[in-house]
């Protein structure tokens, strides 16, 4: 194997790709998707809630709430009203005529946030003995990632590695159609060097997208090393998919048909991961994308463990190997002249 040739192939693929509008779109799409998810689906931030408390309550309920949320203090009730008018989820606490406190809402707050605020206030009213036993539960209630954000992130990564595969496929089909592959045939380049060099693009894009995705979506507490490993192994799905399409398609036209079928087969299990009950998930075990989705789901919810991840990664590799074994004889047949 010659490193020089492998890098040359990668560089050539990269330059060819960024000069192709369609492929540039494929490269940007996951970033756009991450932005869309970021702006339309609440992440952690929108769940965290803010309280406006009247100055006089600062030592009592104010001090208590500071443990759990952002607290601002106001002179009187009408100042609190002014602040509540603003768009975000802001809850007011002011003194009431009976010497206790009033809970003030605008009415358009997120239901879930109301629940949390309400829970906190109830919690404050509970005798301290009981309070201690409840402590942990309330703290974690603001920390769960909304299911849509999880799905969104998994799709960013899924789309990224599948599109990485498509890029490989497009480059291969173009080489067949233009017959530049024949020109490469008569140089010292070996098939293994071509495959390795071409795969780099399939790794490169998902890694960039994965870290950009985490950054854009503002996830907290994710183990970045686990993210790297899961992304690298998941990229194999895209790479195998890309080479498979590249080998069996003789032109752009039937290439696109094959891509559509392939994308469907690989994407559906990921979607079903979220809708099938736990007992029925066994029907998805054949799909490498299922294992990848599970691994990512546990990761972004900060529940991933090494042992668990090892099983999921083995799932990806095992199912892919089976795919390759089934498809290889077909490749051989189609490659024969």
């Amino acid at each position: 194997m010659s490193i020089k040739r492998i890098i040359s192939i990668f560089r050539n693929d990269f330059v060819n790709s960024i000069r192709d509008k369609m492929i540039v779109y494929l490269m940007i799409a996951p970033v756009l998707l991450a932005l869309v998810v970021r702006f339309f689906i609440p992440g952690y931030e929108n769940i965290s809630i803010k309280f406006g408390v009247e100055e006089s309550l600062k030592p009592s309920i104010g001090a208590f709430l500071e443990n759990y949320a952002d607290v601002e203090y106001f002179e009187n009730r009408s100042e609190i009203y002014n602040r509540i008018e603003q768009y975000d989820d802001f809850f007011g606490i002011s003194t009431s005529s009976d010497g206790n406190f009033d809970f003030i809402l605008q009415g358009n707050e997120n239901e879930r946030n109301i629940e949390i605020a309400d829970g906190l206030l109830n919690y404050y009213s509970t005798p301290s003995v009981v309070r201690d036993s409840l402590d942990i539960e309330i703290k974690s209630s603001g920390k769960t990632l909304p299911i849509l954000a999880t799905i969104g992130f998994i799709f960013v990564i899924l789309v990224s590695y599948l599109f990485g595969g498509l890029t490989i496929a497009f480059n291969m089909i173009e080489e067949k159609e233009s017959e530049t592959l024949k020109a490469l045939d008569v140089t010292p380049l070996k098939l293994s060097e071509l495959v390795v060099g071409r795969s780099i693009l399939g790794y490169f894009m998902p890694i960039v997208h994965a870290y950009l995705g985490v950054l854009i979506m503002g996830f907290e507490g994710i183990n970045m090393f686990m993210l790297l490993i899961i992304t690298l192994v998941s990229s194999l799905i895209g790479i195998v998919f890309g080479f498979a399409i590249g080998f069996i398609s003789s032109n752009q036209f039937n290439g696109i048909t094959n891509m559509k079928i392939g994308l469907l087969i690989l994407m559906i299990p990921t979607i079903l991961t979220f809708f099938l009950p736990k007992g029925a998930q066994i029907f998805l075990y054949w799909a490498p994308t299922y294992w990848s989705a599970m691994a990512l789901k546990d990761l972004v919810n900060v529940q991933q463990r090494w042992g668990n991840m090892f099983i999921q990664i083995s799932g990806i590799i095992l199912t892919l190997t089976i795919f390759i074994l089934i498809l290889t004889p077909r490749f051989k047949r189609t490659l024969k002249l």
Binding site: N16, R19, D20, E179, T180, K182
Partner: peptide, 27 residues
């Protein structure tokens, strides 16, 4: 060295890039 009857080149690369890419294949 092989010259083909159909001009098989990378259309998105410049002439020079085409040659340089193939040049990098040799030992």
């Amino acid at each position: 060295g092989v010259s083909f009857e159909q001009p098989n080149i990378y259309g998105k690369l410049t002439g020079k890039e085409n040659l340089d890419f193939f040049a990098s294949m040799y030992d």
